[in-house]
């Protein structure tokens, strides 16, 4: 499987990061507590290099926090974790983050939103704009370069956000319920696009949608219980994006639902 990206990598860190373009990440000893309640403790999660890891769980179980711990966005005493990369270098600066809520800047056009990282780091804007325009064309918004987020639909906005995450050209991409606000069909289309564009990167996809996890994930973890624990991952067969009507996907969906609802899924249960 070759990456579908037609946009060449760019930026000062491209050369440095190249040998380890795909990097595996390991989160260990993760703990989170709120108001004296232990949400999880001693949790470990591995994101294999170049693979998509999906993390499912009921709301409030702490799955977004787990993602934010990897992104380095959780500061404070309530949450802690150790994050290591399999190439031994720190993860800082090698992560792109696609947030749950639409995080585009309302005053900037689509192109400027995608090129935001370059602008913030003071990189030359000429090449950055050209690359941003190419990425927007790739997500199907080549004709809306100057459109401000307020004039775009929800699906278009998340496509701009996806282009912005790709623009950063980081080996690790963290997605926190990226499509939860979209209608079903738009969500399916965006999942296809995401699978195509993010192939070959190390991706963590946090979602509450079992179908989304099973369509995109190479490994699907379910986080549940209090304190929460991670099950052994499910590994749907075939390459993402899998068809929504794929019998294997549908069968695993039943298993995921069982795990999410917290029923005992150990074999040898009571027979009818």
């Amino acid at each position: 499987m070759s990456s579908a990206s037609v946009v060449p990598p760019h930026g000062p860190d491209a050369a440095a990061a190249d040998p380890g373009r795909t990097v595996g990440v390991r989160l260990s000893d993760a703990a989170l507590q709120y108001g004296g309640v232990r949400l999880f403790d001693g949790l470990a999660l591995t994101l294999p290099a170049g693979r998509t890891t999906a993390l499912l769980g009921p709301s409030g179980v702490g799955k977004s926090t787990l993602l934010r711990l990897i992104a380095g966005l959780e500061a404070g005493d309530h949450a802690r974790a150790t994050v290591t990369c399999d190439d031994g270098r720190p993860l800082t600066g090698r992560v792109a983050y696609l947030a749950q809520r639409d995080s585009l800047l309302p005053w900037a056009g689509a192109l400027d939103n995608v090129a935001l990282g370059a602008r913030l780091r003071g990189e030359p804007m000429g090449p950055a704009r050209a690359r941003a325009a190419a990425l927007l064309a790739e997500v199907g918004l080549g004709d809306r370069l100057t459109a401000r987020p307020g004039t775009l639909s929800g699906g278009m906005r998340q496509r701009v956000a996806l282009a912005r995450a790709l623009m950063e050209d980081r080996p690790v991409i963290l997605m926190d319920e990226p499509f939860s606000a979209l209608d079903f069909l738009t969500r399916l289309r965006l999942q296809d696009l995401t699978a195509r564009l993010l192939a070959g990167r190390t991706v963590l996809l946090v979602t509450h949608d079992p179908l989304e996890a099973l369509r995109l994930g190479d490994a699907v973890h379910v986080l549940h219980g209090r304190p929460a624990t991670l099950d052994a991952p499910l590994t749907p067969p075939g390459a993402p994006p899998r068809e929504a009507v794929d019998p294997a996907v549908l069968a695993l969906q039943a298993e995921v639902l069982r795990r999410l609802t917290g029923e005992d899924h150990a074999g040898g249960g009571g027979a009818p």
Binding site: G72, A99, S103, L105, G117, R121
Partner: peptide, 25 residues
């Protein structure tokens, strides 16, 4: 805070964040 977090993940400096995010916002 979401915009500030994006800026942090993008390795933005304080002044760049002020100029390109906080002031327009």
């Amino acid at each position: 805070p979401l915009w500030l977090e994006q800026a942090r993940v993008m390795n933005a400096g304080r002044w760049a964040t002020l100029r390109h995010i906080r002031i327009p916002a």
